[in-house]
Write a protein that binds this DNA or RNA. Structure first.
Length: 299
DNA sequence: GGCAACCTGCGA
DNA sequence: TCGCAGGTTGCC
């Protein structure tokens, strides 16, 4: 469940259980997720204290007092179950449905903290991964080298979009999904941001830059709608889709605010539009848009 | 650039 | 049974 707002929601849910806490016991239920776990993974965590839990794009980074950083990515279906010592369950972002036998399937990593809290990583499809990197090398690591701008940090504006997209013929949809340009957007929020900006997803990305490289008004608008949709989604606790249950009120709610995503053949939610949401496939993935709000680009 | 691959589950 | 799913990678 992993675009920027969901990962940020997870981060906030993990902070009370992890920051300042020591790993007492780390149990791996299998040798790998998407990649093998690092050498001596559990031993390198056990006894170490988490000094800070941050997010970069869709990655979580837990800084340890050992000088290493635990890097975590949720892939498509990764999530955390957080059991606090007082019995509260803070599982952030979403919740898995308990299996028929009441045993959660796909619990791959169990982290027992010295405080008594237990943090369990669950990932049905195992596209997520964990890694340990020297904190000093983090920015240059394979995970973060070449990563694009953080969209909610100050700086993403029309001029940046124009500079990043200038001379590119790739469709806007693909350009916005390219983590080397802007890092943190995924399928949902790209569709939503393009809709709010009134931009057709097949528009060549370079169309947002004028001949002199300056931003078009649409570039400025897109920068604004990206930040707007992400900010609203973070405030809503992210989006929770289909197969996840809402159990204690902290699951995401932004899916109710989708204007186009996963709404093919339903009415466009733009005020007074009256159009119908369409679905196309771009680089193998669904794109949802409203042809009325987002007309094909004309040069 | 696109596209299949990684893996599992769900709904049509 | 097939198609589809919030991501990323590596190979055309």
């Amino acid at each position: 469940m992993p675009e920027l707002p969901e990962v940020e929601t997870v981060r906030r849910g993990l902070v009370p259980a992890m920051v300042g806490a020591r790993f007492a016991r780390v149990t791996l239920r299998r040798p790998n997720l998407r990649f093998p776990f690092p050498e001596r993974f559990a031993e390198r965590l056990e006894g170490r204290t988490v000094t800070d839990l941050a997010r970069r794009a869709k990655y979580l980074t837990a800084h340890l007092d050992s000088g290493e950083t635990l890097v975590m990515h949720l892939g498509m279906s990764g999530r955390f179950d957080v059991a606090m010592p007082d019995g509260r369950n803070l599982s952030p972002g979403d919740f898995y449905l308990e299996g028929a036998q009441g045993v959660p399937k796909h619990d791959h990593v169990v982290m027992a903290m010295g405080t008594g809290a237990t943090v369990t990583y669950n990932d049905v499809r195992r596209f997520g991964f964990m890694d340990l990197v020297p904190t000093a090398d983090l920015a240059a690591s394979r995970h973060f080298a070449g990563m694009g701008i953080e969209p909610l940090e100050p700086g993403l504006d029309g001029a940046v979009i124009a500079r990043l997209f200038r001379n590119r013929f790739t469709p806007l949809k693909a350009a916005l999904l390219d983590q080397r340009l802007i890092a943190g957007l995924g399928n949902i929020y790209v569709c939503e941001a393009l809709h709010r900006a009134g931009l057709h997803p097949e528009t060549p990305a370079g169309c947002l830059a004028k001949a002199d490289g300056k931003p078009t008004p649409k570039a400025t608008l897109l920068a604004r709608t990206i930040r707007q949709v992400l900010t609203e989604a973070v405030a809503a606790g992210g989006s929770t889709l289909r197969d996840y249950a809402h159990t204690d009120g902290s699951a995401g709610a932004f899916q109710h605010a989708f204007r186009v995503y996963d709404r093919v053949n339903e009415p466009c939610r733009a005020p007074g539009c009256g159009g119908t949401v369409a679905r196309i496939v771009q680089s193998g993935r669904s794109t949802f848009f409203c042809a009325t709000c987002q007309p094909a680009f004309k040069a």
